[in-house]
Nucleic acid binder design. Structure first.
Length: 378
RNA sequence: GGAGGAGUAGCGAAGUGGCCAAACGCAGCUGACUGUAAAUCAGUUCCUUCGGGUUCGGUGGUUCAAAUCCGCCCUCCUCCA
């Protein structure tokens, strides 16, 4: 029976790129099958900021994220549950993933205390005392009802000492075990590999998580300000110990080059706020590099953002109009720019999948990066 | 023709003897943003060989010192005729 239920969620590897070793596959979920590698837009508060569900779907996204910490504070997990779960609450019928709140241990570090039993937070909204335990994070995520839920971990600040990281990894492992024991539903549960830049800790953490046995494995503690080579090492140190037949998720990675590096290293899933956040700040990813729509040079530029892009924005609007909307503070501007950046990244990953199928991923990676130029940031 | 008011950096607008190369806002420009406390944040916008040099409608004064005080001129606004 349990086998039967688990079958709703599994990864089917279809092809391994002969040139690179990158994987192409189908991730089967209760809300549909999606291809990997994939980029997953982040919708922290049960909304990918500024976008309607129709727009999210039109972009071609596979899975979208939401967040345990934030939703549990507002509107509250019970309300989402009463609504019939996240999918119904936000009217999205595609696969979803909720992060456990482990990232908030990092991003809201000023307002929290880490203990063995869990993490005590002060609400960033009103100062309320909050407590997140590994069991509690699972329980909340079960109420939210995403297809994939995450172990509660500590996303450790970079750089950290070996001693701190060792303690933290052991705690994260105990939390992973506790979360696994508490987990009651058929939602897929992923473990998160921590260990910072230390090879033996990444290996240790990965091996222990695999012993506990999860439905998928994430690499965490990445994209938090470490140099690029360190991030790549973090992946390299963990991947060899992850099972081939389970999905691998590189957390928080969303720049073009990092995604491609991750795919090359055998990662399947990526998420990041970068495309949506920078879009709201007027920065666009285009096939020719980074573009800042604020610039006066676009005032009378009646061409699309990116003439190689097939997104709704590029098909229908000009730079001059988008600049006008952005500069005027019109919300449509943020929306159209978010649509573009997400579509750009998702299309970039679509191209990666095709390249993997054709055993030429390394060529693809090289051509994308060369075309994008070495515009800083991505 | 008479009475009153106003002219400050690209624009708006503070400042009304020294701490003023001149607040602040806008506009412009440049960065940043990576499991979202983010429609946010940081820097920058007279010239410069970085020592300094030239600014506050124009001009001439007063003063150790003027965007700030005084004379004249120019321009604009309001009201009266």
């Amino acid at each position: 029976m349990i086998q039967e239920m688990k079958k709703k969620f599994y990864l089917e590897i279809k092809h391994i790129c002969k040139q690179s070793g990158a994987r192409y596959g189908i991730l089967h979920t209760p809300h549909g099958d999606v291809e990997v590698p994939m980029f997953m837009p982040v919708g922290t508060l049960a909304t990918v900021k500024t976008l309607s569900v129709e727009e999210i779907k039109a972009i071609g996204s596979g899975v979208i994220l939401s967040n345990t910490y934030h939703l549990s504070i507002r509107p509250g997990a019970d309300i989402v549950q009463k609504a019939g779960g996240l999918h119904k609450f936000m009217n999205y019928d595609g696969p979803m993933l909720t992060d456990s709140g482990g990232f908030q241990v990092f991003s809201l570090a000023a307002n929290r205390k880490i203990k063995e039993e869990g993490v005590h937070f002060r609400s960033h909204l009103n100062g309320d005392k909050l407590f997140f335990s590994p069991e509690g994070a699972i329980e909340i995520q079960e109420k939210l009802g995403a297809d994939i839920i995450m172990s509660f971990d500590e996303c450790v600040h970079y750089p950290a000492t070996y001693e701190y990281m060792l303690d933290s990894v052991n705690r994260t492992l105990r939390w992973a075990e506790r979360g696994k024991v508490a987990h009651k539903t058929e939602q897929a549960l992923f473990g998160i590999v921590q260990g910072g830049e230390f090879a033996e800790l990444r290996k240790y953490c990965a091996n222990k998580l695999v012993e506990i046995d999860f439905d998928g494995y994430a690499i965490g503690g990445t994209s938090i300000g470490e140099p690029k080579d360190v991030c790549l090492k973090m992946i390299d140190y963990a991947v060899p110990y992850l099972p081939v037949d389970k999905p691998r998720y590189l957390m928080g990675v969303g720049s073009i080059d990092y995604i491609l590096e991750g795919i090359e290293r055998g990662m399947d899933m990526f998420d990041c706020v970068l495309p949506t956040r920078i879009a709201r700040h007027g920065a666009l990813m285009t096939s020719k590099g980074r573009l800042n729509i604020r610039k006066a040079e676009y005032k009378e530029d009646f061409t699309p953002l990116d003439d190689e892009c097939d997104c709704y924005t590029c098909k229908n609007y000009t730079r001059a109009y988008l600049r006008h909307l952005y500069v005027s503070g019109e919300s449509l501007g943020q929306r159209l720019l978010s649509i573009h950046n997400l579509r750009f990244l998702i299309k970039m990953v679509e191209g990666a999948r095709e390249a993997i199928k054709n055993d030429c991923f390394l060529d693809y990676k090289k051509s994308v990066i060369e075309k994008f130029g070495d515009a800083k940031g991505f």
